[in-house]
Nucleic acid binder design. Structure first.
Length: 542
RNA sequence: GUUCCCAUCGUCUAGCGGUUAGGACGCGGCCCUCUCAAGGCUGAAACAGGGGUUCAAUUCCCCUUGGGAGCACCA
């Protein structure tokens, strides 16, 4: 059976010429002003009186022969947006939401807009705006045009609220915050869902209300149902009786989030609203507002949330909340895009999905419905893949940049950078993060004998040092190239009844200070005869 | 409490009525090997429970259980 996906339902032709209002609007140009996209999905207000056969008749608008190709091209270009509120860093969940929107826009050749929802003046900060913008840039999610700041549009939001008020689709409510708190407490005590009881819905303010502060609330339908047709979740039905009359305009005249999103989405011509599942409940209320405004309904898609490794809500306790943190841990943007994409979206058995491929493949149908958890091991593995995939000099340059961003910044000498680049083919094979890459390259950065780590010290026992001492003259007498050195070591080992490893390990420890490293003879060659012998002599003999 | 959503190996997932339930990460073994990786082969590991519908349910429906989200003059 087909999964319940949002159909492309359309309200039936409203007038007698057999065409939809939007079709007429497109031809007259009226629609382009109001909206740039056909209604992808529709809310159906099921009035109890509506006969079943008239509910949300399904019609495919793309079959209409009356539309020219040019109009088709115009109306099928989606407009998406990512709309974070600047109250903190760019969260990993937000990053995924942005990614999915971006992917769909790039996939369809549509538009991807960025809107900063800064209407909460208390909690919004310029630092957070920067953090979000930087996070987006680091992730490689470029947006079209300038970022839009919602607060700047407060006048427009107020205008819409006033219009709704004038049309009697909204009303003034004089209830005080204290009064409402009291009401909610009583409802909770009665084990009911806290909900505005509509006490001012049909009441006309008398002289007592003169000059008193009021809010503007939407006159929402009280019966029937509101259906959110969601490309991820399917049809989600809410009884209008469970939804209350939400506040549009606060008593200080500022718009609420509900008003601002709906107005902005409509004004910006947003065709697809893809956001976190925490907004699914909001969608029903927003649909009521959209209906009151007579605006076009966007396609909705609510993405399941991301949980921490333990399945609980992703919180600061899990650390690594901001995308910045992933950058600092040495993950590549390409890795993040691939990983976040696979968290909740799939394409058969494919795991390695570079961004270009993702753009070609991305769709809404393959988005999963259940919440996912972060798996850092898998992230590491994927990052290792992309590190190996990166060209040597590009990766070396990225590491240098990365080190410069650390606190405190680390800089590499010219010699260090040169060696880093030369050793990169072997180095990158062994690193899962840029941090690991850096650690395994450290022995190349400076000259002179190494200080041994614990494992290396264990290799340089008196016995190990004796082997090292015995091997030294042979190496010195050899042509200083990787293969020649290896051949010398092999014959030396063989002559003394030793395995190559027994000879190589003490050498490696002295050369790198570690028990593991890129291939030994390759590194000897890279460091050169003088430097290598200097390091080895320091630990030769007792 | 109430509204809404979700439910396949430990984790991410494939599956869209009939499969030896597949892949990936992680874990174990083997191979390769100068170490560590990478790579190849291989093993263990799942349909939450109960009712229906059906010749046949992981798959469709209902209930239970378990998770999650919303319920502000926050966004």
């Amino acid at each position: 059976m087909q999964r319940q996906r949002a159909g492309r339902r359309q309200r039936g032709p409203a007038q007698g010429d057999g065409r939809f209002r939007w079709q007429r609007e497109i031809e007259t140009g009226a629609r382009a002003q109001r909206h740039r996209q056909p209604q992808g999905t529709a809310v159906i207000f099921r009035r109890p009186a509506t006969p079943p056969h008239r509910r949300g008749a399904a019609v495919c608008q793309f079959r209409c022969p009356a539309l020219s190709a040019a109009i088709m091209a115009e109306i099928t270009k989606p407009v998406l947006r990512f709309a974070p509120s600047p109250t903190g860093m760019l969260h990993i969940g937000g990053a995924r939401t942005a990614l999915f929107n971006w992917l769909y826009a790039r996939h369809t050749g549509g538009t991807f807009l960025l809107r900063i929802e800064d209407t909460d003046r208390e909690r919004s900060t310029p630092e957070a705006v920067d953090a979000i913008l930087n996070g987006m840039r680091w992730m490689g999610l470029d947006w079209d045009g300038d970022a839009i700041f919602q607060f700047a549009r407060a006048g427009r939001h107020r205008e819409v609220a006033e219009k709704l008020l004038a049309e009697n689709k909204a009303y003034k409510c004089y209830a005080t915050p204290e009064e409402l708190t009291e009401m909610r407490e009583a409802q909770k005590a009665a084990k009911q869902q806290p909900r505005y009881d509509g006490r001012w819905r049909d009441r006309t303010p008398g002289p007592a209300e003169d000059g008193k502060p009021y809010v503007i609330r939407l006159r929402a339908p009280q019966s029937g149902q509101t259906i959110v047709q969601d490309v991820v979740m399917g049809d989600v039905t809410f009884d209008n009786s469970t939804l209350d009359d939400m506040i549009l305009l606060r008593s200080d005249g500022t718009p609420t989030y509900m008003l601002a999103v709906v107005v902005d989405d409509a004004d910006m011509g947003i065709t697809h609203v893809i956001r976190g599942a925490d907004h699914l409940n909001n969608a029903a209320r927003q649909l009521q507002l959209i209906d009151a405004m007579g605006a076009a309904i966007p396609v909705y898609g609510h993405l399941p949330l991301i949980n921490g490794p333990d399945g609980a809500k992703l919180s600061k306790r899990h650390g690594a909340l901001a995308v910045e943190a992933y950058r600092d841990m040495g993950y590549l943007p390409e890795t993040m895009r691939n990983y976040l994409l696979r968290l909740g979206w799939s394409h058969g058995d494919d795991e390695i999905i570079p961004t270009v491929q993702a753009i070609a493949w991305f769709n809404f149908e393959a988005i999963g419905k259940s919440a996912a958890r972060m798996d850092y091991k898998k992230l590491d593995n994927l990052n290792g893949h992309y590190i190996r995939q990166t060209a040597d000099d590009v990766l070396a340059a990225e590491l240098v940049t990365f080190l410069g961003l650390l606190t405190p910044p680390q800089t590499l000498s010219g010699m260090a950078q040169e060696r880093l680049r030369a050793a990169m083919p072997s180095l990158k094979e062994r690193a899962r993060t840029l941090l690991e890459l850096n650690q395994s390259a450290e022995f190349l950065y400076t000259d002179g004998p190494r200080t041994l780590d614990e494992a290396a010290a264990k290799l340089l026992t008196p016995e190990g040092r004796a082997i090292l001492a015995a091997a030294l003259p042979l190496l010195d007498a050899t042509d200083w190239s990787g293969p020649a050195l290896e051949a010398a070591a092999r014959s030396h080992a063989e002559a003394n009844g030793l395995k190559l490893g027994q000879v190589a390990q003490p050498l490696r420890a002295a050369l790198t200070g570690k028990a593991s490293s890129p291939p030994l003879f390759e590194m000897l060659a890279l460091l050169g005869r003088a430097e290598s012998l200097n390091r080895l002599r320091a630990y030769a003999g007792s």
